[in-house]
Design a protein around this nucleic acid. Structure first.
Length: 130
RNA sequence: CCAUAGGUUCGAACCAUCGCCCCCACAGUAUUGCGGGGGAGGAAAGUCCGGACAGCAUAGGGCGACCCACCGGUGAAUAGCCGGCCCCCCACAGUACUGUGGGGGCGAGAAAGUGCCACAGAAAAUAACCGUCUUGUCUCGCUUCAGGCGAGAUGGGGUAAGGGUGAAAAUGUGAGGUAAGAGCUCACGUUCCGUUCUGGUAACAGGACGGAAGGGUAAACCUUGGGUGCUGUAAUGCCAUGUAUAGGAAUCUUUGAGAGCGGCUCGUUCGAUCUCGCCUUAGGCGAGAGGGUUCCAGGGUAGGCAGCAAGAUCACAACAGUAAUGUUGUGACAAGAUAAAUGAUGGUGUAGGAACAGAAUCCGGCUUACGAGACUUAUGGUUUA
RNA sequence: GGCCUCGUAGCUCAACUGAAUAGAGCAUCUGACUACGGAUCAGAAGGUUUCAGGUUUGAAUCCUGACGAGGUCA
């Protein structure tokens, strides 16, 4: 599998899993982004299953929502390496959902730094639960 | 040359790195690797119209509801498009009123009927009221032989000239006519209806003859003519998963209900055997309960495939047509996702970091949003000849 | 993806169908009452009726098109 890819199998697609992550999963926010996460079965195909989302209430134009989701995916794709290694080392599998909560269009560089911070925080949260 | 408004056209390109979706081939073999190819719009938007396609419904006819409305053409079809007619507005020339250019028009019927027309005004559609003319009676005044004249009140008749308003007042101006008046008559006009002639496929335009003068409003009800089954690709079809029970109906069964396991419409192992009535030696017959199957009702599951990308398709050329458009020929195949694919970074570069904006069954229109350049039309300004 | 409803004063609503003065309550301001404030009383201000065009003598109302807000089905 490609190192920095974001393939179809890595996407969070199932409707039941999405409902589960919002109902029973935990969350924290790194300001423009709120991260939902949940440990999943070890029978899953990928170590991380990830999804992205934007509120249609804050961004009425589909072009702006697409732009934000693309930037979120790009930042996730390029910053997920250390998180993935830690998960492989501990044999855990998770599902995460990245929700954009700001009302203004994001800047890519800031978003990527925030994503890095967010994943470090996520590693510490998961390490506490061990 | 500049500015504004409308229309047509286009909706930047290239390189490197990291990535996404689909298809094809090979290896491999059920998931990846490598290679090749393709990957948002003129509006994909609004959902305002029209269709294709699918399911359901459907003897025939009528009523109702909704929609459309100058004429001809075009097209699968429309409320679209093209051309023409008529009306309105603006500008210019010219100033009786015509011509040219541009823009707009939900543009059938108001002499089928009903309703409405505030305020003002006599009156908003019956022509009533004031007025005016004429005449009868009564009263008063003047004059006087009977009588006459004038004023007022009231009754009958004629008339619709005039009546400050208003968006709109019963055909405009002039003449005749009359007791007073009036299209009552005449001349020049206006509008409409009928017949007819000419031009035009037609709407319509022009002329002749005869008649009429009926205010507006149908984006008020309505009338006339024409049209319309309903629901929508999350439609619909197939596969997989899974049918508990507490229901209803039909039918079958009572040597096999039920339970466990597995590869779960099946196989295998274990294995219970109800109640009542009649006949009666064992036992048999009938009914009920229970159980099975099918259908209805109802609950659950949220996965896959088809629909789903070759079509009223697109590009170019020729021909027909004023044009919309059509015909023929040649060439092309041009996104197909399903938490939903086109991105990020750097550089060259430009209009100086490009506006409006992201396919979701597919087409044809309409409307709205928007960037720069080019072309073109109209108006205004400046300069030169 | 389809369908429906609604935009009126700072806020909540009338007046729309059936056309001619845009009105009510709360809030705001001024005055009175009170030692002061509240309550109460009197008065005032506040509207391009979301926008544009059309029909009409006349449009919040009727027609058309935009813009915005909300709801609903699966």
């Amino acid at each position: 599998m490609k190192l920095n890819g974001y393939h179809k199998k890595e996407k969070l697609k199932s409707r039941t899993q999405l409902e589960a992550i919002f109902a029973t999963g935990k969350s924290f926010s790194v300001f423009p982004v709120k991260i939902f996460f949940l440990e999943t079965d070890t029978s899953e195909t990928a170590y991380i299953k990830a999804g992205v989302g934007v509120s249609a209430r804050h961004f009425k134009k589909a072009v702006h929502r697409n732009r934000i989701k693309r930037l979120l995916r790009e930042a996730y794709r390029l910053e997920k390496q250390t998180l993935l290694h830690q998960l492989e080392k501990h044999g855990k599998k998770i599902a995460i959902f990245l929700l954009y909560i700001d009302k203004e269009m994001p800047d890519y560089i800031v978003l990527r730094e925030k994503m890095k911070d967010g994943f470090e925080k996520l590693q510490s949260r998961l390490a506490i639960q061990e």
